[in-house]
């Protein structure tokens, strides 16, 4: 089988399958069509004018450092809604080695029980 033919083959994992080459061809064709369609649009704007300032509802723009949104805020909504879980997990992390060993023993014994029963 030549390299060309093997590339045309569909990857199969036993339950899933896909062909990256065909997908790339499709993407390329659709990209061309959409690029041509987009070309009909107006591409001009007034560079270095008020127009290019970020929209801040009329508020002044502070320095980049002050306006920057930190990485710790990235998952805010996510951590906020699951706070009750994180708080409990935090409580478990006491930093005391004997507590961690106790958890280890508890979980191993539960696992043995489950494996033994099933």
């Amino acid at each position: 089988m030549s390299i060309f033919e093997s590339l045309l083959n569909t990857f199969e994992t036993g339950s899933g399958f896909w062909n990256p080459i065909v997908w790339l061809v499709v993407i390329l064709i659709v990209f061309l069509i959409i690029h041509i369609l987009r070309g009909f649009g107006n591409k001009n704007y007034k560079v270095d004018t008020e127009q290019t300032k970020p929209f801040l509802s009329g508020n002044p723009e502070y320095s980049k450092e002050k306006m920057h949104i930190k990485g710790s805020n990235l998952y805010w909504g996510f951590t906020e809604s699951l706070k009750w879980i994180f708080d409990n997990l935090n409580k478990m992390h006491t930093g005391n080695t004997s507590d961690y060993v106790l958890w280890f023993v508890i979980i191993i014994s539960v696992l043995f029980l489950v494996v033994g029963l099933i």
């Binding site: 649009g41 107006n42 704007y45 290019t52 300032k53 970020p54």
Partner: peptide, 10 residues
């Protein structure tokens, strides 16, 4: 399509 395609300075 007829409107300006503004790219912000930042």
């Amino acid at each position: 399509f007829t409107k300006e395609n503004i790219v912000p300075e930042n």
